[in-house]
Design a protein around this nucleic acid. Sequence first.
DNA 1: GAGCACTGC
Length: 645
Amino acid sequence: MANLPIVQFEKKIVETVDQNPVVVIIGETGSGKSTQLSQMLHRKGYTNSGIVSVTQPRRVAAVSVSRRVAQELGVRLGEEVGYAIRFEDRTSERTQIKYLTDGVLLRESLSNPELNQYSVIILDEAHERSLNTDILLGLMKRLVRRRASNLKVLITSATLDGEKVSKFFSDCPLLTVPGKLFPVEIFYSKERPISYLESSLKTAMEKLVSKLEDKVRSLEEGSCMDAIILPLHGSLPPEMQVRAFSPPPPNCRRFIVATNIAETSLTVDGVVYVIDSGYVKQRQYNPATGMYSLDVVQISKVQANQRAGRAGRTRPGKCYRLYPSRVYHDDFLDVTVPEIQRSSLAGSVLYLKSLDLPDIDILKFDFLDPPSTESLEDALKQLYLIDAIDENGSITSIGRTMAELPLEPSLSRTLIEANEYGCLSQALTVAAMLSAETNLLPGRSKNNEKKRKYPPLELPDGSGFGDHIQLLQIYECWDENDYDIGWCKDYDLQKRRQSYRNLRKALSIGFASQLAERMRHHNGFRTLGFKPQLVQVHPSSVLKPDDDGLYPNYVVYHELIATSRPYMRNVCAVERQWVIPILEKLDKLDVRKLSGGGLGHVEEITEGNKSDLLKKEAVIVTAPEEQESKIQAARERFLARKGKK
DNA sequence: GAGCACTGC
C-alpha cells in the first residue's frame, strides 16, 4: 500500500475534498484509487458523520476491492468495511466504508432519495459510462445542491474525459494521480488488415484459436517455446474460463484469444504482449424502430489505452495495434459512446419518474451526455402503453410497483397483470426464463444433431402459442420430473389442453409496446408500437404456421433484432380482443405530454380512476359483434395517423 | 431458416 502512487497525494486530495463538494480524480490504472480514496477520507474523519461509499460498475469489483480494504485496515469484512451487491449485503451497523454496485446505490436512492446515510459518495470507474453511472452522475448533481453542507462527491475518471466531467459539475477541481504501470511500447501497423476473419466474433475466435494451434504445430521442433492456446469469453463455462488464469508450465507460452471481457472485467496476470484489433462488438438500440443490433464497431481511445495497459501490469510490455496511428488519432473517439446513448431507456425513465423529483421534465434532465429526444420519447411511449405513466406523464400506481421490481418494465408489468389473473407463478417462471439466458434448450444446429448419439428428447412445443409458453412448459416439465434428464415423455398429452390464456393476456399487457400484426396475405408481421416495419418470426421460434400455413394474427415479442433481416425473438400469440385497448391507447397518444410530471393534471387522473379506466378497457371487449368493427376502426385510425407522419 | 460483446437491479 505504501508504494501506491496515490499515497503521495493524500494531503492534496483531502484538502481539495474539504474545500469542495465535488472533486474529479483522474486515476490511471494501478494508482490505487479504488482502495485508497475511501481510506484517506476515513482517516480524515469523514466516517464520523456518515458512511464513505464507493460504487463499482461490476459486482466482482465491489467484492474484491472491499475485501482488500478490509485486509489493509485489519478488520473483518462485513464489519467496519463491507459491500452490498445484488443478493448479498455484507454490511452491518458498524460499517464505515461500503463498496456497492452503482445499481444498488440507485435502488437505495429510491427509498432514501437524499442518501443521508452517506457522508461521501465516490463514483469509481465513471469513465466506463455505464447506464447506471450516468444516471447517478445526473442525480449527484442535484443532490450536492440539496446537501451542499454535508455531502462530498468524488468521481474517478480517465484522462480523456476528466475535463468534461469537471465542467458538468460547475468546473469543480480536477486532480490527476499517476498510475503504476510498466512501460508499454506501442506498435502500429501501416494499414488495416483487408479481411477480418469473420463478422461473428465467436466464429472468429474459434478459427483464430485453431489457426494458432495449426501454426504452432507446423513449427519446427524446438524453434519456439511450447504454446497453450486458450479462448476467453463470457459464454465460456466457468471451468474453461479459469484455464486462462492458471500460469503456464515452464518454457511454455500462453496465447489467450479474448473478447473485451479481458479489457475491464477480468485481469489475466502475466500478460506481456497485447494484439489489439481496434474493434469491439457492441449491442445498439434504435429508438425509431425498437430494434436491436449487434455491430462490430471501432473502439475508442480510452478502450485502446485500456487494452494496451493490460500488457504492462507485471513487467514492461508491448502492444501491437492492427491499425495505423493516424486511425487512432483521427478516427477513434476519445471515449466510448456511453451506454445511455445506445440502450432502450424505458427502465431508466421509469426509475427517474418514480423518484418524484420536483419539477422534473424528463426531456430536460441534466445528463452528462443526454440521450436523444427520440430515445427518451420512445421510452415514454413504451411506459404509457404499459400503464406505467398516464397520458399526462404522471407515474401511476402500477408504475410505482413496476419501478420497485428489478426487471425490465415489460416483464414487471406482465407480473402485475398475471397476479390479477391468478397466474403469477407461471409468469414468474417465464420472466425468470427470459431473464436468464436459457440453457435448458438444447442447441438446434444441424451440427449438434449429427453429433448426438441419441435422438433428441421430445420438447414441449408451446402448444401453438409460441416461445414464452414453451419456456414455461419446459420449466414445468423439468420441475415435475425432479430436474431429471428423462423427463417429458407423455408430456404433450398432459399439457396440450391448456390454453395458458391468462398468462398470454398478461404478456399482451406487459408487452403492449412490443406488438405486431400479421400481414393479411402473407406471414410477415407489421410492428404496431413503432412506425410500421416488416419483421419476421425468428427461425429459432417454436411458433410455426398452423395447418393453413398461417401464423397467429397478433403476437407480442420480447425483442426485435436486426441480423441478416429484422426478426422478432421470443414471440407469444395473443388474441385480437386484447389488442383493441392497446390500439386505442396508441391512437390517443400524445408523446409531448408524457415528459413532464403531469403537474396540474394530477387531480383529473387519480390513481383510483386510473385502475377503473383499466377495468373499463377490459370490459369493452366483451361484445363479440362489436369487436370486429372496433378493431377495424382503431386500426384504421391508427394507421391513418401514422401515414400522415 | 439463424448466429451467440459485456454488464446490472
